[in-house]
C-alpha cells in the first residue's frame, strides 16, 4: 500500500467520523474533533517557534546582541499572566501597546471605509442602477434614524429601506448556502475521487 493510499484512508476515516455527527453525537466524532485540535496545535507551535521566536527574539538578542529587543520581548511575555488570577492585570500592558495600531489605522480606515464609499454614493443619477442605489442608501439611512417614529409617510419610506435590507440579507444567505454546499462538495469529491476512485 502506497503512502498516498494510506494518507487518503486516514483522511477518509476522519472525514466520515466528522460526518457521523449528522446522525448523532458519538465517540468517533469526538475522537476526530480532539485529533484535529491536537494536530493543529502540534503543527502551529514549532512553526511559530521557528518563524517567530528564533528570528525575532533569539537571534537578535543572543546572536546579534541587540539588547533593545529585550524590552518588547519582556513586554510581550507579560501576556502569560492572563493565566494568573492575581497578576492578570500585567497582561494589559502589552495590549495597550497593541492598541496603538488602532490609532494608526483611523485615518486610513476613514478613507477606505467611509470617504471612498461616500464619494461613490454621490455619483450622478444617470442610469437605473445609480437610481436604485440612491433610493436604497436614502431609505436605509432613514430607517436607522430612530429619533422620529416610523409612522405615516415616513414609515412607508423606511419600509422601502427594510425591503432593500431584506434583499441584501437574502443575497448573503444565498451565498452562505452556496458556501456550505461547496465545502460538502469538496469533501465528497475527495471521498469519491481520491479515495474510492469513482469519479471520472
Amino acid at each position: 500500500m502506497s503512502f498516498e493510499a494510506i494518507s487518503n484512508f486516514v483522511a477518509a476515516f476522519f472525514t466520515l467520523s466528522i460526518f457521523s455527527f449528522l446522525y448523532k453525537d458519538n465517540p468517533f466524532y469526538k475522537f476526530a474533533e480532539a485529533m484535529f485540535v491536537g494536530v493543529t496545535m502540534g503543527y502551529a507551535i514549532p512553526l511559530v517557534y521557528y518563524n517567530t521566536f528564533i528570528p525575532f527574539v533569539y537571534r537578535p538578542i543572543f546572536i546579534e546582541h541587540n539588547f533593545i529587543i529585550l524590552i518588547p520581548a519582556l513586554m510581550g511575555s507579560l501576556y502569560i499572566f492572563r493565566f494568573s488570577k492575581n497578576l492578570s492585570w500585567l497582561s494589559r500592558y502589552p495590549i495597550v501597546f497593541g492598541m496603538a495600531i488602532i490609532g494608526m489605522g483611523v485615518p486610513l480606515s476613514m478613507h477606505a471605509y467611509v470617504l471612498v464609499q461616500m464619494r461613490i454614493a454621490m455619483m450622478p443619477i444617470d442610469n437605473i442602477n445609480t437610481f436604485i442605489i440612491f433610493v436604497g442608501t436614502i431609505t436605509i439611512l432613514l430607517y436607522f434614524f430612530f429619533s422620529k417614529a416610523h409612522k405615516g409617510v415616513y414609515g412607508k419610506i423606511t419600509n422601502i429601506g427594510i425591503w432593500y435590507m431584506m434583499v441584501g440579507f437574502g443575497a448573503s444567505f444565498g451565498y452562505t448556502v452556496m458556501a456550505r454546499i461547496s465545502l460538502l462538495i469538496g469533501r465528497i469529491q475527495f471521498l469519491m475521487g481520491d479515495w474510492l476512485h469513482l469519479m471520472k
Partner: peptide
C-alpha cells in the same frame, strides 16, 4: 473569497 464573504465585498468592487 469564500461565498459567505462575497456579499460583503461588493461595495468595494463598486468603488
Amino acid at each position: 473569497v469564500t461565498a459567505v464573504m462575497a456579499a460583503d465585498n461588493f461595495p468595494y468592487l463598486q468603488t
